[in-house]
Nucleic acid binder design. Structure first.
Lengths: 324, 324
DNA sequence: ACAAAAGTGTTAAACTTACACCCATGC
DNA sequence: GCATGGGTGTAAGTTTAACACTTTTGT
């Protein structure tokens, strides 16, 4: 029971209160939807197809940044929470309505959108690519998976007695996943279009500079988009920050399972970790670490030019147990 | 260099684009400003004064929730980022302009504010109480420190084969810090007021229920305010979530230093950790752990009924070094 | 046969945890 | 003397990290 009681005086205040008389921003949810993409089969019968980190982008149909690729997302509606906005957008864009979803920060740099004052809450979404059914949303006429490659480069490290400045450059390379072939049921609805659009603008590059300043015992990070070729708005920055959030959460939580199909081999799970963390892990150690979070099934893989592997699934017991 | 070029067609679009024709929310930054409060001296000459976790609240001057206590905060202005809003509010409210400051999530439940569609970004701020100079902001006529006590209570744990529901109740008790006495320079400006306000409504209680649902391998947390006596809006929920963020960050980062004065004893640092984590730590182990983050000064405490302690300060070297 | 992935065991080093112990001070 | 906080050492237990090794498959 809420003990707050409204008085007549207050009721009168609220009736005459006009919130629209104050300047206020539009609010959007921008979605960084990650998945593990499986490269096309190689000819070598032994070698497993390579796995890559993928992100979902949509091509902008209208101004501004018409024709550029952007993160899926959309405006919040009155009467829904921002999480509901994010879930609605995810559903519209991928057809998936249950996925790992969490916000990782607000993007509100002045003039980040030429249309006016628009702030975005960034959301990290992890999906199993094979469950996605891409289709065009209201503001976009094409949705596609891009592989993500983020190269980190430390440009400058200035450490003084009681202040420091560390500049890091993130070089983003997003490559459009080779067009879905016939047997791939991924694309359901996609407006066929002019020849111009068939030209595969398959690689997007961008560079974001992160300036971390330490002074007065506090850290501030500022991001500047150095170069953004074919990516709309400040989405290059949002992608970098989303990837950082993904890496951070991968280290601390067991969220990688959300990128996997229900049943998976331990090797593919390890590969997913390695892709996100950007380092190779030693198999025995990795297995010991994830052992509590998986359970063996009685199914096996087969048909590859090597020893078959047991299929595992998530151990739900330890999933619930992590209640601090 | 930004390679995006605007066409005439796009310029025309933007000139006629009216962002105000869409429904949009007001945006505020709500600040959970934490500090370590030192209780009044005890009579026992040996015993050090107790330390408590404190939070800054302001009493609302206008409707709605007139007379209730609320988190400090305010509306974002066009032309500033939300972090700038937060820093501006912190400065206005405490006089502090350099502090640990980070956002911990958006609050956007429909109807959370009776004035209309208002969403808030929650900010965690950690300050050294002794550096604060409280004063009234534009919307509040009184600011005060409250000690924070959050009691956790697991109400229900329903774990099935592949779903679970865990309900936890957080009972909040906020006690106004005994009025500043003469030698305390904390309060600079404070509008003196009617006798009614002298009655010390010194204790605020509230209860928030957290429902964590696990289904489809995903976790969702929903917060419901069960009882909020004297706290405005959904601020009881924001305080609980801010405290969770504080505890989480205390475990992973070295943010506790931001609550401490420049020079401190290892015991007071340990006490700060214990207050936040809600558990007692063993001294030798604690010291080993924080040893890399502190450096000895040549100063000592004295005058208490026990052995004097060395004063330490933060080791800035390791502060910068944590660059992953 | 052999390359690629699947999978196990062993050991040293690092870190965590628990606990036992002594020191210095003001009254 | 003694309660209180200040401070150190040691040893057991656990976790992490590195590496060496065997197994199974399709061509």
């Amino acid at each position: 029971m809420r003990t707050y009681q409204m008085t007549d005086e207050e009721r009168k205040f609220l009736n005459t209160y006009d919130i629209t008389s104050f300047d206020r921003p539009s609010l959007t949810a921008d979605m960084a939807v990650f998945a593990i993409l499986t490269e096309n089969e190689t000819e070598e019968y032994r070698k497993d197809p390579a796995q890559k980190l993928g992100i979902l982008l949509v091509r902008r149909e209208g101004f501004p940044y018409k024709g550029s690729w952007a993160l899926p997302g959309g405006f919040a509606k009155n009467g829904e929470s921002i999480d509901e906005t994010a879930l609605r957008e995810l559903r519209e864009e991928t057809g998936v309505d249950s996925a790992y979803l969490s916000s990782f920060g607000m993007f509100s740099t002045p003039a980040r959108d030429p249309r006016g004052w628009i702030v975005s809450e960034g959301f990290l979404a992890l999906v199993d690519q094979r469950k996605c059914r891409l289709r065009a949303g209201s503001d976009a006429w094409e949705a596609a998976w891009f592989t993500v490659d983020i190269r980190r480069e430390e440009l400058k490290k200035h450490v003084l007695a009681n202040s420091a400045e560390i500049i890091t450059k993130y070089v983003l390379t997003l490559s459009r996943k080779p067009a879905a072939d016939a047997q791939d049921p991924e694309i359901i609805e996609q407006k066929g279009n002019e020849a111009e659009n068939r030209i595969p603008d398959s690689v997007i590059t961008a560079a974001v500079e992160e300036t971390r300043t330490f002074s007065n015992h506090h850290e501030t990070a500022i991001y500047t988009i150095i170069d953004s070729d074919g990516l709309a708005f400040d989405h290059a920055e949002i992608i970098v920050r989303a990837f950082q959030a993904l890496r951070e959460k991968t280290r601390t939580d067991t969220i990688v399972f959300d990128l996997m199909p229900e049943k998976f081999t331990l090797y593919s799970l390890q590969a997913a970790y390695e892709i996100i963390l950007g380092e190779s892990l030693t198999t025995p150690n990795f297995r010991r670490k994830i052992a509590p979070y998986v359970v063996e099934t009685d199914e096996m893989t087969g048909g590859a030019g090597h020893r078959p592997a047991k299929l595992f699934k998530r151990n739900l017991d330890t999933f619930y147990r992590d209640t601090k």
